[in-house]
Amino acid sequence: MSQPAELPAEWTTGEDYVAPEDRPAEWARMAAALAASGYSEDQLAQALAVDEQTVERLIQAAGEGA
Rank of each mutant, 00 (worst) to 15 (best):
M1S: 13
S2K: 06
Q3A: 15
Q3K: 10
P4M: 05
A5S: 05
A5H: 03
E6G: 06
E6N: 11
A9E: 15
A9N: 04
A9I: 11
A9C: 02
E10R: 06
W11A: 05
T13H: 10
G14P: 00
G14I: 14
E15K: 13
D16M: 13
D16Q: 13
D16T: 12
Y17C: 00
Y17S: 01
V18I: 14
A19Y: 01
A19I: 03
P20M: 09
P20K: 12
D22Q: 13
R23C: 07
R23D: 14
P24V: 01
P24Q: 07
A25D: 08
A25F: 04
E26C: 05
W27N: 10
A28G: 00
R29E: 04
M30K: 12
A31Q: 08
A31T: 02
L34A: 14
A36W: 01
S37Q: 15
G38L: 09
Y39G: 10
S40R: 06
E41A: 01
E41H: 05
E41I: 01
L44D: 04
A45T: 01
A45E: 01
Q46V: 11
Q46C: 07
D51N: 15
D51W: 07
Q53M: 13
T54F: 04
T54D: 10
V55W: 11
V55N: 11
E56M: 08
E56C: 00
E56Y: 01
R57I: 07
L58G: 03
L58A: 08
I59N: 09
I59W: 09
Q60S: 07
A62K: 09
G63E: 12
E64G: 14
G65E: 12
A66M: 09
